[in-house]
Every structure is written in C-alpha cells, then in structure tokens.
C-alpha cells in the first residue's frame, strides 16, 4: 500500500562536520542548489537526560539548529548535505545524523585545529569514512597538507585537502575526494 511513489527520487546524505565557525554552513551553501534550509529541534525530545542539561543555559539552548542543502545528482537521485551541530554536547544528534550517511567531511580551521578534534574522533570511533578539509580563511593556506595531517594525527588512509568553503568548485572537489575514498574502499582491486 504505502510503497514508494514511483516518481520519488532515491536519496543519500553526506555530513559536513567540524568545530564551531569552521565554515560548515558556508560549505553547504556553496554547493547546495537551494539556499541552505534549517530546522530547530527541541532538546527535550532528543533523548537527553535532565542531568545532561546541567551547565546549559536552558532558556537559550532549548533547541538545536540543523542546516542542510541539496544537490540533484540525477533525475532519480538526490544528495543531501547536513551540517552537524558544532558543539560537542549535541553529539546525541550526530548519531542519528550519521546513520545511513555515505560518509563525512570534517572541516578544519588550521588556526585552531582543536575545534575539530571531536568530529575526527567521532567518525574514527564509528568507522565512518571521512576526509579532512582545511578551510583557508581569507583564501590562505599557511600550512602544507603534511603538517595538518601530523597536527591532527591522521593516518595516511584519511585524505587531507585544502579548500575554500566559499568556492563551489573547491567544495565540489572535497565531496568528490570523499566519494573517491568510498569507491577505493569498495573496489575489490587495490585492497
């Protein structure tokens, strides 16, 4: 009865993660065919214990915002990009977001790489494929890729790229790098 409307497209998603202010929303907006959309989720329904709300200013933080964009890949396939809520205390939402995702992009601001450690840990622990993209604020990339890899203690298997979150082509290349990683992992040759 409730089987798919035959004209409904298939959907897949990729997460754009990283610390607060690293450029997640900017990146989503750069490649999305729509202005990034936003929903606000009440925290109470998200499975938080009351204890977890300790230290959160309740009046100000009763919702967590989620923004996302869309790329129509083909008539019958749509890719969604979800910017993960930056703060670590919203990790309970990341679990839901990560479920069924193709993989993730972790954006890093090289001036303060620590802010993206938590995101890297999250995907590493759950064995979710990801690439790391250093967002060059003011278009500058003061550190070479090798230094960034070392500072973040990333294994060779994790691609590290330089990007400009404001540039569509640059963001597209980051997404392609992620898909290439997935294809390389999936292909029987080269294992």
């Amino acid at each position: 009865m409730a089987l798919a409307g035959s004209d409904a497209p298939d959907t897949v998603k990729i997460l754009i993660a990283g610390g607060f202010g690293v450029g997640k929303t900017t990146m989503v907006g750069s490649v999305s065919e729509i202005v990034p959309l936003r929903t606000e989720e009440p925290l109470t329904t998200a499975g938080l214990d009351v204890d977890d709300l300790d230290g959160i200013e309740q009046k100000r933080s009763t919702t967590v915002a989620l923004d996302f964009g869309r790329i129509t890949i083909a008539d019958d396939l749509v890719l969604y990009l979800f910017g993960t809520p930056g703060q670590q205390r919203f990790w309970f939402m990341w679990n839901d977001l990560a479920l069924g995702a193709l993989g993730a992009v972790v954006l890093v601001d090289v001036r303060r790489p620590r802010s993206s450690f938590a995101a890297i840990d999250f995907f590493e622990r759950r064995d979710i494929p990801f690439v790391v993209a250093a967002n060059g604020f003011h278009g500058e990339h003061p550190y070479p890729v090798e230094d960034i890899r070392e500072a973040l203690a990333l294994p060779e298997a994790v691609p590290v790229l330089l990007c400009d979150a404001r540039e569509r082509a640059s963001c597209r290349d980051v997404l392609i790098a992620l898909i290439d990683l997935l294809i390389a992992e999936a292909a029987p040759v080269g294992r």
């Binding site: 890949i73 396939l77 890719l79 193709l102 290439d180 997935l182 294809i183 999936a186």
Partner: peptide, 8 residues
Amino acid sequence: LQKVRDGL
C-alpha cells in the same frame, strides 16, 4: 557511488 561522483 559512481553515479554520485558523476553527478558531482
């Protein structure tokens, strides 16, 4: 995956 790559 290939389809997504081509689309991107």
